[in-house]
């Protein structure tokens, strides 16, 4: 029996959030946290959480497990359970809609703000735009982001200024386009980022790197953006 303590809040029936205890029979198997949630939902059908692909590529089930953000579907119990206990909470710093479901609006807004699409003002050729394998390699470690928000919601700078600091996820995507040899909007992109909040609220504490379920490194990308800003303005 696994003892799971889970954050519960239903705005229609609860005046305040509370932690609820569940006993879950895992039959001794090292299953994923998402499987545990399924078992709990069979006990209490009203338990709310997001999930989709259950293989770590859709980014739906980011949550806080025993104090650390991650994806429930690719986190085996052996990786998180301490002393036979598991505490599940919604991603920190975003408004809770119900149980583990948070309002991702601020997170998506910061993503949209960096213009996350290729911009190229030259006429498109009849075939693809050519790109050398070396230039393409520069996108590795950037384009794989699944927008799960594990990084941004583990970042204190994002907690304090979610409306102004783009956050690690958005900045990783910003650099994905800055680094793309096919994108011609580098100057415009940089000019949107030089204020004291958008990029420079990053203090380099690397919480984002520690939690990214895809093993990406937003801090390094932010450093690269800073280098580009500096090179552009001095």
């Amino acid at each position: 029996m696994l003892q799971v303590s889970i954050y519960r809040y239903n705005p229609e029936t609860d005046s305040a959030p509370y932690m609820q205890e569940f006993q879950v029979d895992t039959q001794g198997r090292d299953i994923m946290v998402l499987d545990v949630l399924h078992l709990m939902k069979e006990q209490d059908n009203g338990l709310a959480y997001r999930r989709s692909c259950r293989e770590g590529v859709c980014g739906s089930d980011g949550m806080n497990m025993n104090g650390k953000n991650g994806l429930a579907c690719i986190t085996p119990l052996s990786e998180v359970v301490k002393n036979g206990k598991l505490a599940l909470r919604p991603l920190p710093g975003l408004p809770v809609i119900r149980d583990l479901v948070v309002d991702m609006g601020l997170f998506y807004k910061q993503y949209e703000r960096i213009q996350p699409y290729l911009q190229n003002d030259t006429p498109a050729p009849a075939i693809e735009r050519l790109q050398s394998p070396e230039d393409r390699d520069k996108l590795d470690g950037l384009y794989e982001c699944i927008l799960c928000a594990c990084c941004s919601t583990s970042c204190p700078s994002f907690w304090w200024n979610p409306d102004k600091f783009v956050g690690p996820a958005g900045l990783l995507q910003s650099y994905r386009f800055l680094a793309d040899s096919r994108d011609t909007a580098t100057r415009e992109r940089l000019s949107e980022l030089e204020d004291p909040f958008s990029v420079f609220r990053c203090r380099g504490i690397m919480n984002c790197v520690a939690v990214c379920p895809k093993g990406l490194n937003p801090t390094r990308a932010i450093g690269k953006i800073r280098d580009m800003l500096l090179a552009n303005a001095t």
Partner: peptide, 8 residues
Amino acid sequence: RSGLSDWL
């Protein structure tokens, strides 16, 4: 007046 100059 700019994050970049503050940072520098």
